[in-house]
Design a protein around this nucleic acid. Structure first.
Lengths: 205, 205
DNA sequence: TTGTTTTATTGAACAACGTTCATTATGTTT
DNA sequence: AAACATAATGAACGTTGTTCAATAAAACAA
């Protein structure tokens, strides 16, 4: 029957509106200021309604973190037309860093905050498919680099993780306000120079 | 007069007890469970008393983060008897990582959480002396490495930051539960292998 | 010792948070 | 039109960090 379908669609729509409001507030004010009440106010519904569509806040944050991975994943996929693996690796890192610096709150949610992982632990089968897919893109590229004679003597898995960790670390220190505070340098400039330094070392045959 | 001195000492003592209780709860239960009320309960004082000695929670967390840096700084200083700079660099990284994995909550506070930096911004002159001192130990060692012909063509400042970021990134991903979730590997083992991989690349002349 | 003043401690009360759930409103079906 | 099902509500609960008038304790002065 048609009513059931329409209702299902309406429910989907409202859920999407909730998520949209959360995303907006999240990007604008950060997670601290993104309360359930503020989300409800944004879409002009009551607090209770939010809880009809989302069982708790971690589920909202998990959905949000998925959107972030959808975006980053898309940008990653677009880079697979770069055939030279080392060039692609550098490009992947650049895009990753750009994403982090331009979407600090979202990056923080994806790679630093505990909420999404807690949701996965509690509701899904401990399997972080978004993280896996993204890491796969890196791993695949690193494997091709190995095949082309780069990273001689290194093993795929730890090497890939080390590369991920390296870029993530700089982004993380940036987002969590440690860069300027510790180095005294202009952060954005330092980030770029440091990234070049890293990639230079990585790309030595 | 003697009473004033004694009183000052007693105040110091109680403040230290508050911090000690905070440290204990913090290490045991994590920051989420370390509430002002739980600290007050631990030392058998009322909530109000805590606020006589600490103006707010960020100040407690800042003092705690200082203790962490005192410990890490001490371990760093002990490594300066290693004369070979590259050996020392490797040792510094190892100790840093060991500290992170063995004191996850404290490391998180020192390098990830916002509270200590917010306190510094609001109360001190924007100068993160703990971070500066620690970064200096790294920078000094990196400079000696440069003097010994390592890292040819790199600049001290961005290079040092890149190295810090690399190790921090792996620790951070570990602490924030992304390692196993994304790689599917046994985390501790992966951390060690990845660290070796990094240091191998760093130490190439 | 007694009265006065200063200092230390208290815990009820506040605002804001995530969350719940009986109640109300709306829409659908018979 | 009545009966039923679904959706939306917002007051209320338990916790959080934080404040502050009231109380207790200690120090000082006579």
């Amino acid at each position: 029957m048609g009513t059931a379908e329409r209702k299902a669609k309406e429910k989907e729509e409202l859920k999407a509106r909730i998520l949209g409001a959360a995303k907006k507030l999240f990007a604008e004010k950060g997670i601290e200021q993104t309360t359930i009440r503020s989300i409800a106010k944004e879409i002009e519904y009551s607090v209770g309604t939010v809880y009809v569509y989302y069982k708790d806040k971690t589920e909202i944050l998990h959905d949000l973190h998925q959107q972030g991975f959808a975006q980053l994943g898309g940008e990653f996929r677009a880079l697979f037309h770069v055939s030279d693996p080392m060039e692609r690796l550098k490009a992947l890192g650049r895009i990753y860093m750009k994403f982090a610096l331009e979407n600090t709150q979202m990056y923080d949610l994806m790679f630093n905050m505990k909420a999404p992982m807690e949701f996965i632990k509690a509701n899904e089968d401990h399997h972080w498919k978004e993280g896996n897919a993204t890491f796969d893109a890196l791993r695949k590229t690193v494997q091709e680099c190995l095949d082309h004679g780069y990273f001689k003597g290194h093993q795929l898995e730890p090497l890939s993780f080390a590369i991920w960790g390296s870029v993530h670390g700089m982004c993380s220190l940036y987002i969590r306000d440690r860069v300027k505070a510790a180095t005294g340098q202009e952060p954005d400039q330092l980030m770029n120079s440091a990234y070049e330094d890293l990639m230079f070392m990585f790309s030595r045959k």
